[in-house]
């Protein structure tokens, strides 16, 4: 029985980690290549979730809604890059934090104006609403399993894109030494816009996958944004591999902390104290993880560049 629970939590952790990876992959590239701290990355996630939910309702098809929503968010992201963020690359971190913080406020208000304050709900598509028997005694919701498969597929595709293709080479060159990549004639402007669009598309995908599980509401981007930042910093800024390892680490540590920490503490400490400290420790476990990583490796697990 406990083994089943353990396996189930492993899958939950993996699923959460992979979704974090979708967000962190775009964030770490924007961070590493453009040297931009984009606090508004979470807003793209929110925009993606809203667009997918709305388009799914409008078209009546989840697949169509997801496809159109991702495309729309990618366009939105590219427009944002061309019109606004491009001017921030050369500015210091402080200006970037300030400007993208402002974008969050603007995005939240705009969303409220368009969709109102009530959260949207998106139902799990009928074909995926059942459960799958993985092992005797372990059934797992089909939709969550789909999330895991989609996450793994995207991770594999990104790996091939970044490691095996010409454009991936440009991206890696940009992340490890931007000036040199520019000096060698890479059309950086185009590359930046494309990378930003791809990051936005990944945000929308994560938004679409999580929308049926969570409420689609204003402010949904902020809490997950911080987790994505934690992931990026743990993995090492600019490293896709680091983002992947970091995301899985954060996903598993967070899920396990929430699932097992209170029980474990209750075994070791007086129940009154354990009941109070358990949830707190579970919530802060990933931040402790990040602080620990930065303490020993101040540039993350997989530092990029010099």
């Amino acid at each position: 029985m406990t083994w089943i629970l353990f396996l189930e939590q492993c899958l939950n952790g993996l699923q959460f980690g992979l979704m974090l990876f979708l967000l962190a992959a775009g964030l770490t590239l924007v961070f590493g290549i453009m040297d931009l701290i984009n606090l508004a990355h979470g807003s793209l996630y929110m925009a993606g979730a809203y667009l997918v939910a709305t388009l799914t309702q409008a078209t009546g098809s989840f697949m169509l809604g997801v496809t159109l929503g991702i495309a729309a968010t990618a366009l939105l992201g590219m427009a944002l890059e061309v019109l606004l963020l491009r001017g921030l690359y050369k500015r210091d971190h402080l200006s970037q934090v300030l400007a993208t913080f402002a974008l969050i406020l603007i995005a939240n208000e705009t969303t409220r104006v368009i969709w109102g304050v009530q959260p949207l709900t998106l139902n799990v598509p009928d074909t995926l609403s059942g459960s799958v028997q993985l092992l005797p005694g372990l059934t797992y919701p089909a939709f969550r399993l789909t999330i895991i498969l989609v996450g793994l597929a995207v991770a594999a595709a990104l790996y091939i894109l970044v490691v095996k293709t010409r454009i991936g080479m440009l991206i890696r060159a940009g992340a490890s030494n931007r000036q040199m990549a520019m000096a060698m004639g890479t059309d950086i402007k185009w590359l930046f816009t494309a990378v930003f669009g791809a990051g936005a598309a990944l945000c929308a995908l994560a938004g679409a996958m999580l929308a049926p599980l969570l409420a689609v509401e204003v402010g949904m981007g902020e809490s997950i944004l911080i987790l994505a930042f934690v992931t990026v910093v743990i993995g090492g800024i600019g490293s896709i591999r680091g983002a992947f390892i970091g995301a899985i680490l954060v996903g598993v540590v967070d899920t396990f902390g929430r699932a097992f920490m209170p029980t474990l503490l209750r075994a070791a400490l007086p129940p009154s104290f354990a009941d109070a400290a358990g949830p707190a420790l579970a919530s802060i476990s990933i931040y402790l993880l990040m602080v620990g990583v930065l303490f020993w490796k101040p540039r993350g697990l997989f530092p990029v560049g010099s």
């Binding site: 910093v233 990040m290 602080v291």
Partner: peptide, 20 residues
């Protein structure tokens, strides 16, 4: 960047401690 993020992380920890 790492300083920005680590101060944010500590603030989150303090937040969750009081939430709990």
């Amino acid at each position: 960047v790492y300083f920005i993020m680590i101060t944010l992380a500590f603030a989150q920890m303090v937040l969750y401690i009081f939430v709990s």
